[in-house]
Design a protein around this nucleic acid. Structure first.
Lengths: 128, 128
DNA sequence: CCTTGACCTTCCCGTCACTGGAAGCCTTAT
DNA sequence: ATAAGGCTTCCAGTGACGGGAAGGTCAAGG
């Protein structure tokens, strides 16, 4: 399969797949004309990557997860730790965003949104 | 005030303040020796920026908000629209993160986390 | 007067995970 | 023969800074 086909099948942009090759996450073969050829193993790795990225794992986590996946002697504890750490980061982020959302919701509700200059949003930002 | 003092007072790193000057968000004077000098107006702008950034507004929104703040003839509707758009983005992001969190929480709960290789997290990532 | 340490300056590179675009080669169909 | 579309590499940009180097400045102490 060429890069366009695999892109369609994995849902990953061709650019992203080239980038993954550049950083060593996949190593497709090359045809005589220089084109990349992807086999089922590449397909599988890319699908794995797509799912891991969709769960928000950073690239380096993905690399580690792929290595663990390949390693039959892995301990599930190693996988779990990575997932838990990532989960903790996500939960932190959610809390931050919820706090922003709450403040913003309040401010937006207070603001008349008409053509007068008086604005509680700006007032709040300015009050420090 | 020198940059170190204003950094302490605003809570912004000196590096950030220099960056804000570079992109035109503040324009402190310069002493004969080249040092930046910040007055109360700069202080006020930086405090405004710190608060707006803390609410997650992107830099370009901050620039616009500062301009609106300065403009006595503004319509509060303009401010409100910016805040609402930003709020919508935050809510989107929260939903994405919550979806990730839910999946991860489930997977982590399923995983034994011992030294055996069997791992539902990897299984899920691999299944595509 | 000299030095030390704490400031300050600019400049450049690195972050993260791509994305856009240019310039040019390859393949397939007409 | 040519045109369309796919492929290649390489370079630059994103957002909002952070790290660190090389060097100027200032106040206090010996």
């Amino acid at each position: 399969m060429n890069i366009g086909d695999i892109a369609k099948r994995t849902g990953l942009p061709a650019k992203t797949i080239r980038y993954y090759e550049e950083i060593g996450l996949v190593t497709p073969h090359r045809e005589a004309n220089g084109y990349r050829v992807f086999d089922d193993k590449d397909m599988h790795r890319l699908t794995f990557l797509a799912r891991a990225r969709a769960l928000g794992f950073p690239i380096e986590d993905c690399r580690t997860l792929l290595a663990l996946y390949k390693d039959d002697t892995r301990a599930s504890a190693d996988v779990k730790r990575i997932a838990q750490d990532h989960l903790a980061q996500i939960e932190d982020k959610i809390l931050q965003l919820q706090s922003m959302r709450d403040t913003l919701t309040h401010l937006v509700r207070e603001c008349a949104g008409d053509n007068r200059p008086d604005c509680p949003i700006l007032k709040d930002l300015a009050k420090g």
